[in-house]
Design a protein around this nucleic acid. Structure first.
Lengths: 150, 150
DNA sequence: CGCAGTATTGCAATAATTTGCAATAAGAGG
DNA sequence: CCTCTTATTGCAAATTATTGCAATACTGCG
């Protein structure tokens, strides 16, 4: 089995600085970790562990699972729960975003940075709590589906 | 194996109205479902699927998993993600609560209804979105651990 | 209270996830 | 560049989670 090579035409923008983030914390950069980040970056969507396992090339499932847990811990990924299932997505600290998901039509609406910031500031003011700018998912009913009356 | 019996000295307060909620939606009340609710109610804490499986008496794991998914869907339970793992807790619509969890000391701080309501109102105002009053978990750094400087 | 209809359960087979351990390779230092 | 150290990987076994299907038992109704 051909051994995986580091930095072989990956498509994870290094502007993101994931390499620095790993190295500074004393962790290693491996082709396996890069492949996971690449898959999530290129697909541009949340994926479950199982989905990721199916897409990796020449990589053991155990490694996928271990790295997902690892990458969540070091905050390169977010783990988010949707309808009782876990999904993973890149965590870009420079562009945190939060979603409203409608239970009826399933549409996702992004919460503007301004609105989120107001709440974050309130948490800071009231509790002295500095919330991480990661990804929230809030369920409810959107305007079109009757958000007022629900 | 002794067959499970319905309503045999359960400790889930019926003030909660879970029976009505199930029946009105056309779902059945079974000893298995009640046992899961009871375990969560009596322990008073979030539990993972695995933990719940280990505690059930005379009940097949498949049933536990299927019912957890079911109870989340009908909103009698909340599924929440903590450190990449899924946990279940009772969803009491009359007492929604939201938590701040500190990454450093692990302490959990409840967000007051007032603060949460402000944000919910903002979502309603800005997006016409009626958020469900279920359970959020927000990570960050608490005041004692240096929330200001982090 | 008993019966019919159908959701729900248990069981067994399958798939997904985790774990221990030996082998490998990233990164530091010569 | 080579060597050393140790984090990380792959493999295989063990555990946990899911699925199909026949059997069971909630509920509504007579």
């Amino acid at each position: 089995m051909p051994r995986l090579e580091l930095n072989k035409s990956l498509h994870v923008p290094e502007t993101w600085g994931y390499q620095q983030r790993l190295r500074r914390a004393g962790h290693r950069i491996t082709p396996q970790r890069e492949q996971i980040l690449e898959l999530l970056h290129c697909s541009g969507k949340r994926q479950s562990a199982t989905e990721l396992c199916a897409q990796t090339r020449g990589m053991n499932p155990a490694t996928v699972y271990r790295n997902l847990a690892f990458l969540v811990q070091v905050k390169l990924l977010n783990a988010i729960e949707i309808e009782g299932e876990l999904f993973y997505e890149l965590n870009n600290p420079n562009a945190p975003h939060h979603h409203l998901i409608c239970r009826r039509c399933g549409r996702e609406q992004e919460i503007s940075a301004h609105v989120a910031a107001g709440f974050l500031a309130e948490l800071q003011r009231t509790y002295g709590f500095q919330a991480e700018p990661n990804h929230w998912v809030i369920y409810g009913v959107c305007e079109a589906c009757g958000g007022q009356s629900a």
